[in-house]
Design a protein around this nucleic acid. Sequence first.
DNA 1: TCAATATTATGATATGTATCATGTTTTTAA
DNA 2: TTAAAAACATGATACATATCATAATATTGA
Lengths: 267, 267
Amino acid sequence: MIHIIILNIFTENSIIFKYSELTFNMLLDMKRKDIDIPTCVHCKNSNGKGLLCCLPESDKQLLSENKCHRYYKKGEVIFLEGNHANGIFCLYKGKVKLVKLGKEGKEQIVRLSKEGDILGYRSLLSADVYQATAVALDDSYICHISKDIFLQTIKSNPTLSFEIIQLLSSDLKNAEQHLINFTQKTVKERISEAILLLASTFGYLIDGKTINIKMNRSEIAEMASTTTESAIRTLSALQEEGMISLNGKYIVIHNMKELIRSTHVND
Amino acid sequence: MIHIIILNIFTENSIIFKYSELTFNMLLDMKRKDIDIPTCVHCKNSNGKGLLCCLPESDKQLLSENKCHRYYKKGEVIFLEGNHANGIFCLYKGKVKLVKLGKEGKEQIVRLSKEGDILGYRSLLSADVYQATAVALDDSYICHISKDIFLQTIKSNPTLSFEIIQLLSSDLKNAEQHLINFTQKTVKERISEAILLLASTFGYLIDGKTINIKMNRSEIAEMASTTTESAIRTLSALQEEGMISLNGKYIVIHNMKELIRSTHVND
DNA sequence: TCAATATTATGATATGTATCATGTTTTTAA
DNA sequence: TTAAAAACATGATACATATCATAATATTGA
């Protein structure tokens, strides 16, 4: 029996174990977990387009000195809907989904995040609880900046406020467009939209057509707000029409033009 | 024949007519249109809780000097989805709906606005086109503040930025909650939600139970994202269950507790 | 005031999609 | 490697709600 006790999820992991019982896989895991995370000053993640990129070096330095980071295994929860926000998360590496719990435990994916994205800022800014649960879609490295430091940085940087406004505006726009999509489109149109969203968010593998994310059918169903069975049927149908092909948990796009058309058949 | 040519909807109405052909109704109309709009300094509309209330008097004065206002008859369009934003609208008096055009011309009400609310700020802030069309639900008086003046005011008032962030955050939260509602709830649950939203937005008449808005069945359908026929049937059902009664275009709430319960039957 | 038009109402039918059932394949863990 | 569990797949059926049709009211404008 191996005992792993995580003492505090927001500071560095503190793990108690017996060395003698470490397996090869655990050692591999630790090696993977042990990567170098640069300071905010040197972080090249969002190519100057990220939320915090507008900050002067001194502020980035301040954030770096006060941030902490953690490794999240695929499937691990980063924060829970209903919990109080006490900082923002910055996704250094990995992929994250934001899910909201609906009725009868049915989940709905409301947003996707990739490297360089900021999570949990909305709840923090409106001093609210998290409105969704963040789950790692892939092994991820995520930095955490405390509430105090972040709010202090906003106060001293009007440009940051403006960046936040831009980000919120764009999220709001997407959310409202989403609403129309989900209420007025068929399952097929919604599944097609979900595939396009995955592609535009996570990009492709080196072949240039396989979407760079492994998602199971029930997760795609959660994106398109339908049942797993309907998602399976619809994906098969799209495959038979030659628009996509299904390679295990990967989706390959073959006919982007037709796929885009199939998102708005009767507009 | 009476010729009315509106030269510019953003400045004061410039109307060309022949005096001899003025009808009694037109004169009445002009009288109604001719109301006193206070300066932003003296505007008591949002009781200190509005977006612009945090501003110092000097800024409010500046806004006032540069604002213009216009009367919108019920049903008139204030701005159109797809048009470029060149200022913000502040609803002095009246009621407004924001509708988005879906497929096959089907409309969807995405937000409601009442006295003191600001409209069109999202598009302005992200230098975007309007994502929805604003239509007066009632005879309304709306002030318009130009882009330049508004952006200038933001720059010199960090508090205003923070207020805008709060507003956007809350809109985003609502939009994402809406998503869950519309995709996972039944027509009956959505219609009940729509009624509650109308009540919480526009309040009641003096009897304390008649919702202070006249809405036809197709507009309620647009709120709940269903068809007019289904809206009619569902409203009748709610009436038969004694939760509401229908008084022409007015809705009277009789059993608020049950109505709230009917918005989340299977949560 | 009255005709024209829009809105409300209600019944019959069609249809997309959820649900249930069952079997196959893939993944996971000992 | 193998058993157990999870994910994928597909068919049959049920059901909510859209669509179509038709009529009764209510509203509007000359």
